[in-house]
């Protein structure tokens, strides 16, 4: 049976922990709101680009461009989005495991798969599992993902793809569904697969392209890749905050439960001590009489 003092100490320490988890929850909630707004406001751009793109693809036998043509299953590259910090539930482990599975199972039959990781936690997780596949790690960019960072990553990927270092590029990230639900998503980035537009949008009138079609395509396609990376970054960031918020919430609740239990134990021990003292006094008094 632990002494009164021990129990009191433990209550104090659990209370401290609870304070920290509570504060983290608050911070995550505030960040989540911002991250969510960023993810939502980035959507129109991606949608517009997508529709311009599919309009273009319909009018064009879009196979001439290197970023569009299928090159089969040689080497693949995965861009994995994780967080720099932990304490966010299964967030990092889930995507990292998905990436590991992708590499191990290799369902599409690639000769070799390389891995670019965004976020420290993904690296820590995969270093000892598939360390030889990791080619690059980006750190400290997730918390305030700007379009610039996405652009840099995108341009790297495009460069490597154009040099035929890779024949396909995928991105694996946590898609944001709600604060509690994140879905591990795997998307193909390259070669670009233009979505089919609805039939009605087909216009018989010929478009004017300035400067010309190939030039427009030349500039549009890299944008697609950048936007896809940017969106994945934003979604991943929102997911991270959501995941942290909910896991810190349950941690705070667990701490509260623990404090209740310890307080009960403390009171029982205190009462037992008082009873014992009383008994001693009474028996002492009795022996005098």
């Amino acid at each position: 049976m632990p002494s009164l003092k021990d129990i009191k100490k433990r209550i104090g320490s659990v209370k401290n922990t609870q304070q920290i988890t509570n504060a983290m929850k608050m911070v995550a909630a505030a960040k989540l709101r911002r991250a969510q707004e960023a993810a939502v406001s980035a959507r129109p751009y991606a949608e517009k680009l997508q529709s311009v793109m599919s309009n273009l693809a319909q009018r064009e036998e879009a196979d001439g461009h290197p970023l569009l043509c299928q090159r089969g299953t040689g080497r693949a590259l995965i861009v994995l989005m994780t967080a720099d910090r932990g304490l966010c539930g299964g967030f990092n482990a889930n995507v990292s495991k998905a990436a590991e599975r992708f590499i191990r199972d290799n369902e599409k039959g690639f000769d070799d798969i390389d891995l670019v990781i965004v976020g420290r936690k993904g690296r820590d997780f995969l270093k000892n599992r598939v360390g030889e596949n990791i080619v690059k790690v980006h750190e400290d960019i997730t918390s305030d993902a700007t379009y610039k960072t996405a652009q840099l990553i995108g341009q790297e990927i495009i460069a490597a793809y154009s040099e035929e270092k890779y024949d396909a590029v995928y991105v694996i990230y946590n898609a944001f569904q709600s604060a509690i639900v994140q879905i591990v998503t795997e998307e193909q980035v390259l070669p670009i697969q233009p979505q089919e537009a609805e039939e009605e949008t087909v216009n018989s009138i010929d478009y004017i392209y300035e400067p010309d079609r190939t030039e427009v395509l030349e500039q549009l396609l890299p944008k697609m890749v950048e936007v896809q990376i940017f969106r994945a970054l934003l979604e991943s960031n929102a997911s991270e905050q959501g995941s942290r918020m909910s896991s810190m919430d349950s941690a705070s609740r667990n701490a509260a439960e623990m404090i209740d239990k310890l307080t009960l134990q403390y009171n029982r021990a205190r009462q037992a001590a008082i009873t014992k003292e009383l008994m001693e006094i009474i028996s002492g008094a009795e022996s005098i009489n």
């Binding site: 216009n203 009138i205 010929d206 478009y207 004017i208 392209y209 300035e210 400067p211 030039e215 500039q219």
Partner: peptide, 19 residues
């Protein structure tokens, strides 16, 4: 500011895609 020069657009313009 179109790629090949300043671009003025009015209603009824023919479909166009430019950088």
């Amino acid at each position: 500011p179109g790629f090949v020069g300043e671009l003025g657009l009015l209603p009824g313009h023919t479909p166009l895609l430019t950088t």
